[in-house]
């Protein structure tokens, strides 16, 4: 790892000022992806701005019909939070399945979505539940936030502050994890609620998370696993690597979608 200047601001304004005065600054949530990336010298920022000491970024609140999760909230807190467990159990289960306990104690929701790893779990949660991303500048619908592999709608000087999840009537998440990394080979979030019927897939798409409109249409008629029988996704634009071919991933999307709907109850 190359050396860098380290900053630990106490407020978003301080963070923005540290970022703007750096020649090549990088924001850090829990560092569970950024630090391994720096170790491999895949990135060498001049400055790292650690957001973990900004108290307004952490915590989970219920606001109207939504659960709002601060960007600096770690996965273990989301998994263990009573509001999340009772209102959106699928989200608690998804957070509980990320990485391992030690990674969940440090990795944050804001860091995960800003990184937008194509095999990460949270993008499926945000798109599959119709969440809204709040930043220091604006609010962005999850559908517009994830723009491609490791790409988001965030501007260079934009910081994710929170994610608001509308409480669904039903939601389920099913993941076929890579047995070593626990990243999703395929993960599917299916839900029915104020954001409509949604099916979002992570791990499979070359461009990251995507929705499956054919499945959403089928589930809008009847929200049951049987409704998905015969509905498939083409393998054309899916990832292929040593873990799974594109065809196998396409098959898994169908299987995981059914399991997600079953889990939604």
């Amino acid at each position: 790892m190359y050396d860098f200047n380290y900053h630990r601001p106490k407020s978003i304004d301080e963070a923005l000022s540290a970022l703007s005065s750096a020649s090549d600054g990088k924001l850090m949530g829990g560092g569970q992806t950024l630090l391994p990336t720096l170790k491999q010298r895949l990135a060498s920022p001049s400055d790292v701005v650690d957001l973990s000491a900004i108290s307004e970024l952490s915590g989970i609140t219920e606001q109207g019909g939504a659960i709002v999760i601060g960007a600096g909230t770690c996965h273990a807190e989301v998994a263990g939070n009573a509001s999340v467990q009772s209102k959106i159990p699928a989200l608690a289960a998804l957070a509980e399945g990320i990485g391992d306990p030690q990674v969940r104690n440090r990795g944050t929701i804001g860091g995960s979505i800003a990184n937008n790893d194509p095999a990460a779990d949270y993008p499926a949660a945000l798109v599959g539940l119709g969440a809204t991303v709040k930043t220091n500048m604006r609010e962005v619908a999850a559908d517009d936030f994830f723009t491609g592999m490791f790409e988001t709608a965030l501007a260079d000087d934009e910081i994710v502050t929170a994610v608001s999840f509308p409480v669904p009537e039903k939601a389920g998440y099913a993941k076929f994890p890579n047995p070593a990394s626990r990243y999703a080979i395929v993960g599917v979030m299916a839900s029915k609620g104020p954001a409509g019927v949604r099916v979002a897939v992570t791990g499979a798409g070359q461009g990251g998370v995507f929705r499956v409109s054919a499945m959403e249409t089928a589930l809008a008629g009847h929200f049951s696993a049987e409704a998905l029988t015969g509905v498939s996704v083409p393998a054309d634009d899916l990832n292929a690597d040593l873990h799974a071919s594109a065809e196998y991933r396409a098959h898994l999307v169908g299987v995981m979608a059914k399991r997600a709907v079953d889990a939604a109850g």
Partner: peptide
């Protein structure tokens, strides 16, 4: 009080 991986945490983060 929480277990973490010390190879994926900076010393300065433990201030």
């Amino acid at each position: 009080g929480k277990s973490i991986k010390a190879c994926t945490t900076l010393a300065v983060q433990a201030e």
